[in-house]
């Protein structure tokens, strides 16, 4: 039998919720261990190895020291997977980019003197693919556990993971929900990538776009809906400021 690919998990600036989603796979994690060797995963194990094939990276890049660390990880990994909205597109952390880093620092730390401390040498938030090439993406805030298993299994088997390119509306309809627009709310579902099982609108909350935008061309299936509410792709995109700050469309390789 071929040797199992070695997987390492790393985190940058984020809440660690996606890593916890992996930890919360509980018994199902055993199925994963059948096909990959987890050699480094700070949140759940003490062992650490610098030899790995697949690096799964969570979190956003905030500082020169983060960039250096990420480049080092990239140089060691054959495949790099960006996991969770903070990593795939900057997510919540990119909201900060409306302001200069110094301004944010003052808002949080007041007048404390932080000059010259590399830990606080903060630049504008970057997604992982703004620093190094990314091979695969696991979208969402947090990630969907089933999709995580699918992506990792596919990579381990040498197949391309199947990630939806259609909007959340498709899954929302499947769940027989009343459209959030019908209820008078503003939902980002029509231009947001599906794959989350439309979990938020199913819980009677609007979609906030945590899985990133789909391409404009993929919104054909919601043409009627957009017409009914007199909306364009751009109209909705302008409201995508929670997770998709500064993004225009989905990236080429996502």
């Amino acid at each position: 039998m071929k040797t199992k690919p070695r997987v390492a998990v790393f985190d940058f600036a984020d809440c660690e919720g996606c890593e916890l989603e992996i930890a919360d796979l509980e018994e199902e994690i055993l199925e994963l261990i059948d096909i990959v060797d987890i050699v480094s995963f700070r949140e759940v194990m003490k062992e650490h190895s610098d030899t790995y094939d697949i690096a799964i990276v969570e979190g956003s890049i905030m500082r020169p020291m983060d960039e250096a660390r990420l480049r080092n990880i990239r140089s060691k990994a054959k495949i790099l997977v960006a996991m969770g909205a903070c990593a795939t597109m900057g997510g919540i952390n990119k909201i900060r980019n409306q302001w200069m880093p110094d301004d944010v620092m003052t808002a949080v730390y007041g007048d404390a003197d932080l000059e010259g401390n590399p830990l606080f040498d903060v630049f504008k938030t970057k997604a992982i693919n703004e620093v190094v090439p990314v091979n695969y993406y696991i979208h969402g805030c947090p990630i969907d556990r089933d999709e995580f298993k699918h992506v990792i299994t596919s990579i381990a088997l040498g197949k391309k993971p199947e990630i939806p390119r259609y909007p959340v509306c498709v899954e929302c309809k499947k769940n027989e929900n009343i459209c959030q627009f019908e209820l008078g709310a503003f939902c980002l579902g029509p231009i947001t990538r599906a794959g989350c099982k439309a979990i938020c609108p199913t819980h009677n909350s609007v979609c906030e776009g945590c899985r990133g935008l789909i391409k404009k061309a993929e919104t054909d299936c919601v043409k009627d809906l957009l017409e009914r509410y007199k909306l364009s792709y751009e109209d909705i995109r302008r409201r995508c400021t929670m997770y998709n700050f500064g993004r225009e469309e989905c990236g080429v390789d996502e």
Binding site: A13, D14, C15, E16, G17, C18, E19, L20, M62, G91, I92, N93, I95, R96, W99, D103, V104, M105, A107, V108, Y109, N117, L119, F120, V122, C141, P142, E208, T241, M242
Partner: peptide, 29 residues
Amino acid sequence: IPELRGFERFAQGRRAEDMPQITSRICGV
């Protein structure tokens, strides 16, 4: 405890009802 994400700054100018979503991202635990 050295890291800066800046949630206090994030909040300014946002719709108030966004806050339960945004602030829960402070910590996945």
